[in-house]
């Protein structure tokens, strides 16, 4: 009995010690439940897949889930509004991409209400034609446009979004009048393959299978350097058109989130972005060339630069 009592006391002491010992750790306990990442794209789309891929190593490290929440439609505004309605407790992130910058430039949302956290991916896009297309090179495009300006139709995804900005920028530089036609991602591909569209704009990852089989031919790359995967595809830059903007993917958080939690998150993302499993997925989609992990300060600077760039582009395009 005495023994038992003593044991109880000891146990109580241990429990107390544990409780005290862990008291400061409670703040470090973050994340102690599921973190939701709101994005404006469909489930299974590039961003949704990106979030699932990057959160794999983070879940291993923390034992907590990081789940993508897809709120589609409305040009991304409802997704952003939903994020703003969430509390600043570190358990809701929002994906940030050039589409959000364009929404900001058009006055649809206010990006100053979100704190840039990290930028991870930086993609590069391609102009692609079907294998049966009479257009075999950029010169063919320029010749066709010189003959009948505005005759060529480019399939893009989204309306008044990133793809439109990029094609508009190319038009301004190359003196062409390529007309964009918005489609869903899948219909854009089927309409290009079926010859209803003259060409389409898309990143390498989603079109890799059709490029490898020879059904889609990339004619032009919008980046600084050629891709190792597509050594024969010229960049717009080397042809004299300074169009290098690409789709990047990062995350933001509510501005008044606890600073320690923000640090924890940034470290988690930094480790995840360097994880071999994630790196492999990145390489399969040819995303490794321009992707570079940047933290809150660098991302903020980058974002301000992007806002200036896109505000100017959208103004040029007459939006």
């Amino acid at each position: 009995m005495k023994h038992l009592k003593r044991f109880h006391l000891n146990a109580a002491a241990i429990v107390a010690a544990l409780a005290f010992g862990s008291a400061p750790a409670i703040a470090d306990d973050y994340p102690s439940r599921t973190v939701e990442i709101i994005h404006q794209y469909g489930p299974g789309g590039g961003t949704d897949r990106f979030i699932r891929a990057i959160s794999e190593p983070m879940q291993e490290a923390t034992d907590q889930s990081f789940v993508p929440i897809s709120i589609t439609g409305g040009g991304g505004v409802p997704a952003f509004v939903t994020f703003l309605q969430r509390p600043a407790n570190g358990y809701t992130l929002v994906s940030i991409s050039p589409d959000d910058v364009i929404n900001h430039a058009l006055g649809r949302i206010d990006l100053s209400m979100v704190k840039p956290l990290v930028r991870i991916q930086y993609d590069q896009g391609l102009l692609l034609v079907s294998k049966d297309s009479p257009l075999k090179s950029v010169d063919d495009i320029l010749a066709a446009e010189a003959k009948s300006p505005g005759g060529l139709k480019v399939g893009v995804t989204g309306s008044a979004g990133f793809d439109d900005a990029l094609i508009g920028l190319f038009n301004a530089q190359a003196g062409t009048e390529l007309a964009t036609v918005p489609f869903g991602a899948a219909e854009m591909v089927s309409n290009t393959l079926g010859g209803h569209l003259d060409m389409m704009y898309e990143e390498y990852g989603p079109t890799r299978g059709l490029i490898e089989s020879g059904d889609l031919i990339p004619l032009l790359l919008f980046s600084d350097d050629r891709l190792t995967e597509l050594p024969d595809v010229p960049t717009a830059k080397e042809l004299g058109y300074d169009v290098t903007i690409g789709r990047w993917r990062g995350f933001g958080i509510k501005p008044d989130t606890n600073a320690a939690d923000v640090e924890t998150l940034v470290a988690l993302f930094r480790d995840a972005a360097a994880d071999p499993g994630y790196k492999k997925i990145e390489a399969e989609n040819a995303l490794q060339y321009r992707s570079e992990f940047i933290g809150p300060e660098a991302f903020k600077t980058f974002l301000d630069g992007e806002i200036a760039t896109y505000t100017q582009i959208m103004k040029q395009l007459g939006y």
């Binding site: 299974g44 949704d48 890799r208 299978g209 059904d215 997925i281 399969e284």
Partner: peptide, 12 residues
Amino acid sequence: GGLTIHGIVPGP
């Protein structure tokens, strides 16, 4: 998305 995670490239 499920296919690509398994390293399979969907395509023709």
